[in-house]
Design a protein around this nucleic acid. Structure first.
Length: 588
RNA sequence: GGGCUGGUAGUUCAACUGGUUAGAGCACUGCCCUGUCACGGCAGAAGUUGCGGGUUCGAGUCCCGUCCAGCCCGCCA
């Protein structure tokens, strides 16, 4: 028998019993005639003591090195009062060893498992030895949390009559959306399957089929470049869809899941219940982002009217002038303002970032000299500027004036540590625009999913300025992350043809691309809506991680490679031949 | 595809304006140690400073090129 107990479960109650533990040598402390080993497994750490008077295998114990795998039999003894270790769960006892088996030796490690809290090793190295990094506490806990969370989600979904249905992995390529991963077909040379970017069409077909409530922890594959919060290549979604529910009913159905995950699984606080439902336009104008961190206030305000009364040309000529006053920001240095905040604003396409500081009686620095005393006092009164604030301005088109200050808001929130790490501020963003103006092609485009239901239906499509039509399209956001988009779907053929017509697509295009969907909808389709929160983002959010690779067991690097197994790789010529594929690596 | 930051021992970092033999912690090797828990002590081994070229009496440090990594933009609901 390799073990009778795990390294995390023994306590004072077990004193006197003979047990066998197995695990890895986490730490080892040698004295001449006494060896201590911290034995680690998935469940915890137990101290093992080797005393030459109690074991005939002391020489073996002296050979133990980091990460050897051993099995030790001995007696559980209580530690003396002064030797109790309160840092570990099993700190009141130790295993006095009599017998030891070395199950596996370990080479010198590329990095230490026991985390001494210094800097992090190069990520390339950690990915190459991911199986070692996964032994570390933080990563191990993230992976265990992920499993626990998915288990909780399944229970929640099942208890509400959702049915777990698997949809195809080998499916069909579609030109819109993200770039597809392709899989060549052997039986149909020259043809390709595509890996699903999301099971969007299948889940709608399941609604037509009458399954009523569907869910799946679904793998999604997209061949796009990664970001810190975006996995290269593949990720998972809690994909779900419901029939016969309005948008508000759907929110009410799903909200408890996020509350419970926050409170029961992660042990954190939910900032506001029920979750705020903020229209897109309002969230943009107030926070400068469609996924703001709502744990802190810092609201952007429009001051275009005030700006017109000044003689500062940058302001009087602009379509929109907005400001963001940051209490405490008067402390910002010139270098911070110029390099960090201005840079953030410019990345959001602002031409510049104007600022001035307010000490409670007067404004100083930046653009303050362009305004009269009366104009400044009016600003203090109307915007309730607090003493010690810095006031940032962006004068530009609507979107830029919002987004640039949103980027400034993000940076201030991070630098001033305005967010409580133990709090999750959930919210629904609703009323996304159905269409948007494509400046490059000078035409109207779908803003998001063309299958969303336009608010106002056919009436709106026929009579309203398309750019003012809203969709039953929503996001669930938290702490600056977008967890998911979702929508009430458009299941009406006439509505769909009209919606596409406005975006410049004739019925033949719709039929070619989506004929199978329209056909399905023509045989009795229930009204339906859903969403698909990202699993990795949920874990990141609930664990407070800011890199997606910290919550994925075997992630790909920035170039979408997996250094450990060496994917992607070349394949045998015979494999290519079977597929009728020739590789041409010449440029262009 | 573009921008920013970085690349020094197995690893994490240091080396002031160019200046002796490139240092330290952890890991590794050997020895000492019976109550440690980031144990301690003594000794030791460990480096093509990413790579190539240049400037210089002298380059880890300056210049040019190149490769690699992370983050950001593009892209991605």
């Amino acid at each position: 028998m390799y073990r009778t107990h795990t390294c995390g479960e023994l306590s004072k109650e077990s004193v006197g019993s003979v047990v066998t533990l197995a695990g890895w040598v986490n730490k080892r402390r040698k004295f001449g005639n006494l060896v201590f080993v911290d034995l680690r497994d998935r469940y915890g750490v137990t101290q093992v003591v080797f005393n030459p008077e109690k074991t005939t295998e002391f020489e073996l114990a002296e050979k133990l090195k980091y990460e050897y795998v051993i099995s030790v039999t001995g007696t559980i003894v209580a530690r003396d009062e002064k030797n109790i270790n309160t840092e570990i769960g099993t700190g009141e006892i130790e295993l006095l060893a009599s017998e030891i088996k070395i199950l596996s030796e370990a080479d010198t490690l590329p990095f230490e498992i026991f985390d001494s809290g210094k800097g992090e090793e190069d990520e390339e190295l950690r990915l190459k030895y991911r199986f070692l990094e996964l032994r570390r506490e933080r990563l191990k806990e993230n992976i265990l949390f992920r499993a626990k969370m998915i288990g909780y989600i399944r229970n929640f979904m099942e208890s509400r009559n959702f049915v777990d249905i698997a949809t195809p992995i080998l499916t069909v390529s579609s030109p819109e959306g993200a770039r597809d991963f392709l899989v060549p077909s052997r039986l149909h040379k020259g043809k390709f399957y595509a890996l699903p970017q999301a099971p969007q069409q299948y889940k709608q077909l399941l609604m037509v089929a009458g399954f009523d409530r569907y869910y799946q922890v679904a793998p999604c594959m997209r061949d796009e470049d990664p970001r810190a919060d975006r996995s290269p290549g593949e990720f998972y979604q809690l994909d779900c869809e419901t029939s016969f529910m309005t948008q508000d009913e759907f929110f009410t159905l799903m909200e408890p899941l996020f509350v419970e995950l926050t409170e029961n699984v992660a042990g954190k606080k939910v900032k506001s219940k029920p979750f705020p439902r903020i229209p897109f336009r309002e969230v943009m104008e107030t926070y400068g982002s469609d996924r703001p961190d709502l744990r802190y206030e810092l609201k952007i305000r429009e001051v275009t009217e005030w700006a017109k009364t000044t003689s500062f040309e940058v302001f009087t000529k602009a379509d929109h002038v907005r400001l963001l006053a940051i209490p405490g920001g008067a402390e910002f240095t010139r270098a911070e303002i110029d390099n960090e905040y201005t840079d953030a604003a410019k990345r959001s396409h602002a031409k510049g970032l104007a600022w001035m500081k307010y000490d409670g009686t007067k404004f100083d620095g930046g653009i303050s000299k362009f305004f009269t005393e009366e104009q400044l006092q009016e600003l203090v009164q109307s915007q309730k500027i607090e003493a010690g604030s810095i006031v940032f301005f962006v004068a530009d088109a609507w979107e830029v004036s919002c987004k640039a200050l949103g980027a400034v808001r993000d940076m201030a929130g991070k630098k001033l540590q305005l967010a409580d790490p133990d709090e999750i501020a959930w919210a629904w963003v609703v009323d996304f625009p159905f269409y948007e103006w494509n400046e490059d092609q000078k035409k109207i485009d779908f803003a998001h999913n063309p299958f969303s239901m336009p608010q106002g239906g056919m009436e709106a499509l026929l009579n309203q300025d398309p750019l003012t039509i809203k969709a039953f399209q929503y996001d669930i956001i938290a702490n600056g992350l977008e967890l998911s988009s979702g929508a009430v779907r458009n299941k009406d053929a006439a509505l769909m043809y009209k919606a596409f017509e406005i975006a410049g697509y004739g019925p033949e295009v719709v039929d070619k691309k989506f004929g199978h969907m329209i056909k399905a909808f023509s045989f009795g389709a229930p009204p339906h809506c859903g969403f698909a929160p990202g699993i990795e983002r949920l874990v990141m959010l609930l664990r407070g991680e800011d890199n997606i690779r910290a919550v994925v067991p075997f992630p790909k690097n920035q170039k979408a490679e997996e250094p450990m197994v060496g994917s992607p790789s070349e394949v045998e010529d015979i494999q290519l031949k079977e597929l009728g594929i020739k590789v041409d690596l010449s440029k262009k």
